[in-house]
Design a protein around this nucleic acid. Structure first.
Length: 570
RNA sequence: CGGGGUAUAGCGCAGUUGGUAGCGCGCAUCGUUCGGGACGAUGAGGUCGCCAGUUCGAGUCUGGCUACCCCGACCA
């Protein structure tokens, strides 16, 4: 392809965004922002995305069959599963004006995922145990009304995703296939050049399952997830579910001191409180009061500096969901206004969950359950009974220990590039998808769903591989294998080299513009194509070849250049 | 959803106490350059986000809205 033919130019002066991918991809003319979280893919960007998706397609074709489902679907399907009301990023398409409404006043869901489409689809055809297992996948545009789109391609409202759905007669068969998908995904990320930095992470199963789901997380400082990896094993957790043991407190109190109730009006929040009481934060206790979906009141306490994990707390309490209670309920339960809740003198009617980080401390602080007052030098066994058991209901933080082995976690930021879910029978039950077994009786179908965010992967690759001069594409996803620059005085030779390279099957981008050498070189760096070839009056019958990742170039014959580039293919 | 910032030429930005709008890049024409974002000359290009208001007069002041960017997500 000739660069002069591209209807897109690089832009020397684009705005600096926080994320490299947003800045560089726009500077190099790979994408263009239409609105927050919505981008047009320009010729070079589209080629990259297509390459990423082709790799995904090749690996998915080994374990499933490609289909293409609609993006706008009837709201009824989402009513059937109850998710029309619960998925908080779901968007609708509605008539834009009165005359459109007059002709067709229907509302449609803009799909954010396709369980609601694929389940009724495949149940039309597959009802016998003989039809199972099977899996279908698609690569498609998805819509999610993110409250805050950000970081270029990493968090979009409209984005590209590969979604695979599998169907099974038993949970055991689903689990077997689930492991096959896991392997296929790791192969995808290896081929995309992300293999060394992508780990399988245990995450919350959400509504679908009590078990963990699995996320594929790529190390990336711009990523929004925090991964807690156990150094001595392959186990890693998303922060939201990482089991955590707090490190021992660092202050040393040996004797119990007399308990004091200290007036501290308006002192709310552990940092302010610790300063006010002149005690370390780790001596304070944070107490939160929740109401479960079934109405029961749940009091949760963690050591100061920690946050309560609603996911862990809900699991420990055996409830579906939790919400912080309103100030009036707080007052009823603690007898104090919001801000002074503690674990002393709580009524028997509430369930109390005390995190293990609260234990093993002498003379700690807790809210006095009395407006304006905080209790200090509190001790279990004296001021309140030793709890029957301590829980793990805190959000893990760096420095925490993996409870099973006691070793500190390795903690890093990462970006979720893939996610696999055992759906079990949630959707088959909602849609009444039953299969008939050998004996003629019917059972719900077991399902799994598996996603890879292909446009997000493109952003992650930029975050990881770019440098201060521009993009650096791994060979497998680069828009072209080589970038040919012809300098003034070598136009004829350049055209000949271009033709021969093209004929040899190498994907080549030819900068045939009448620009200065400097512009061409810096654009070549910016576009980040793996090989740079230069033909100039100086190179004669030879061609200069240089890797984007290296500063050393060499002069080779055209034949040797072709050989070198071809030999490097994956 | 809460907080902060921004909105002026295709892009990035400046614009003083309110007085009729500017720079750089890019674009067009000509000339000189040509292995690391070259230079000179000339030129085109703007309802200053939208709606109200104050004023003789608003890019500038006031109110409202919208969009974009950043930070934070009920933390007792």
């Amino acid at each position: 392809m000739k660069l002069s033919g591209l209807p897109v130019k690089t832009n020397k002066n684009v705005r600096q965004f926080e994320s490299k991918n947003a800045t560089l991809l726009q500077k190099a003319g790979f994408i263009d922002q239409t609105m927050a979280g919505v981008y047009a893919f320009l010729p070079l960007g589209w080629r990259v995305l297509t390459k990423i998706e082709q790799i995904v397609r090749e690996e998915m074709d080994r374990i499933g069959v490609e289909v293409f489902m609609p993006a706008i679907v009837p709201t009824k399907l989402w009513e059937t599963t109850g998710r029309l009301e619960t998925v908080d990023v779901l968007m609708k398409a509605v008539p834009a004006n009165a005359s459109a409404a007059l002709k067709n006043d229907a509302e449609y869901v803009l799909s954010s995922t396709h369980e609601e489409v694929v389940t009724p689809l495949v149940m039309k055809f597959n009802r016998s145990y003989r039809d199972f297992p099977f899996a279908v996948y698609q690569i498609q545009t998805k819509f999610r009304s993110e409250p805050r789109a950000k970081s270029g391609l990493l968090r979009c409202r409209e984005f590209r995703m590969k979604d695979l759905y599998s169907f099974h007669v038993s949970e055991a068969d689903l689990k077997k296939y689930y492991e096959i998908v896991k392997k296929a995904y790791l192969e995808v990320f290896r081929r995309l050049g992300l293999g060394d930095d992508t780990v399988v992470v245990l995450a919350s199963g959400g509504d679908f399952t009590k078990d963990y789901s699995h996320e594929f997380q790529t190390r990336c400082d711009t990523g929004e997830d925090t991964v807690f990896r156990v150094p001595s094993s392959e186990v890693a957790f998303n922060r939201e579910v990482a089991p955590a043991k707090a490190p021992p407190v660092t202050y040393r109190d040996t004797d119990m001191l007399p308990r004091k109730d200290v007036e501290g009006k308006g002192i709310i929040g552990v940092d302010e409180l610790a300063r006010f009481l002149k005690i370390p934060v780790e001596k304070t206790t944070k107490t939160l009061i929740f109401k479960a979906d079934d109405g029961q009141i749940i009091v949760a306490a963690v050591r100061g500096g920690y946050d309560v994990s609603e996911v862990k707390l809900a699991k420990a309490a055996g409830v579906k969901s939790l919400r912080l209670t309103d100030p009036e309920t707080v007052k009823q339960i603690t007898g104090a206004q919001t801000g002074y809740a503690g674990i002393l003198n709580l009524p028997d009617t509430v369930r109390v969950f005390i995190d293990e980080s609260v234990g093993n401390r002498r003379n700690f602080e807790t809210g006095a359950n009395r407006t304006d007052f905080h209790s200090t030098n509190v001790n279990f066994g004296r001021d309140l009974p030793e709890p029957g058991r301590f829980y793990d209901i805190k959000v893990a933080r760096p420095g925490d220990l993996f409870p099973d082995t006691g070793e500190p976690y390795e903690v890093f930021q990462a970006c979720e590039v893939g996610n696999i879910f055992p759906l079990n029978t949630k959707f088959s039950t909602a849609f009444g998808y039953l299969f008939t077994d050998e004996s003629g009786s019917t059972h719900p179908v077991y399902m799994g769903s598996y996603g890879i965010g292909t446009s997000r992967v493109m952003g992650v690759i930029v975050e990881k591989f770019s440098d201060d001069r521009g993009l650096v594409w791994p060979r497998a996803v680069a828009p072209f294998a080589a970038h040919l620059i012809t300098l003034k005085g070598a136009e004829k030779r350049g055209a000949q080299v271009y033709r021969e390279l093209t004929d040899s099957g190498i994907e080549i981008l030819w900068d045939d513009r009448e620009e200065s050498a400097g512009v061409k070189f810096s654009d070549a760096d910016l576009l980040g194509i793996p090989y740079r070839l230069v033909v100039s009056p100086k190179t004669g019958e030879l061609v200069e070849i240089k890797l984007r990742t290296s500063s050393a170039s060499e002069l080779l014959s055209l034949g040797a250049v072709i050989k070198t580039i071809k030999a490097d293919k994956e």
